[in-house]
Amino acid sequence: MDTDATYQAPSVDEIKTLLTERFAGKVNVTKTETRRVYATLPKEIVHEVCEYIHEKLTFEHISTVIGVDMVDYMQVVYHISNYHTGTMIELTTNLDNHDLHVQSISDIWVGGNWHERETYELFGIIFDGHPKLERLLTPDTYEFYPFRKSYKLRGQE
């Protein structure tokens, strides 16, 4: 398929083919369902892939940016949706515990801004290039990241 063309309402199979052809060997489409595409990718190309999905596949809306603490490593999950077909792409990327940096996507979708801020304050994942990476829900004085697994609730210690 033509990976440089613009698709307004690509089908699930088309998305799978386009992503695997354009980013051969890097983006791995793990599963597809009705109106759902699941993919994993290395963190270096997150911004590039998101830009492609936004510009060429017409995915106009970012639903969430989710942080996950897997203890040995961290994950960032993106949910991106298309308003013409109702399709949603789920991108998962792994971050090393020693290097919790990933390129911010809030320049592509402004709606991702607060989701990234929330993930930063609760997990300590740093989004490079974010316009205002400050604490949002918790007080500025917090020096810990409450949603990490190492932070125990009272009664769990």
Binding site: R35, E60, H61, I62, S63, Y83, T85, G86, M88, W109, V110, G111, G112
Partner: peptide, 24 residues
């Protein structure tokens, strides 16, 4: 509206024809 991530009636008031009940 779309880029800011606004959803729901506020989004449909700006011409985005999308409702999860119908489209997903």
């Amino acid at each position: 509206t779309v880029n800011l991530g606004i959803t729901g009636p506020a989004m449909r008031g700006a011409g985005v024809d999308f409702d999860i009940r119908r489209d997903d």
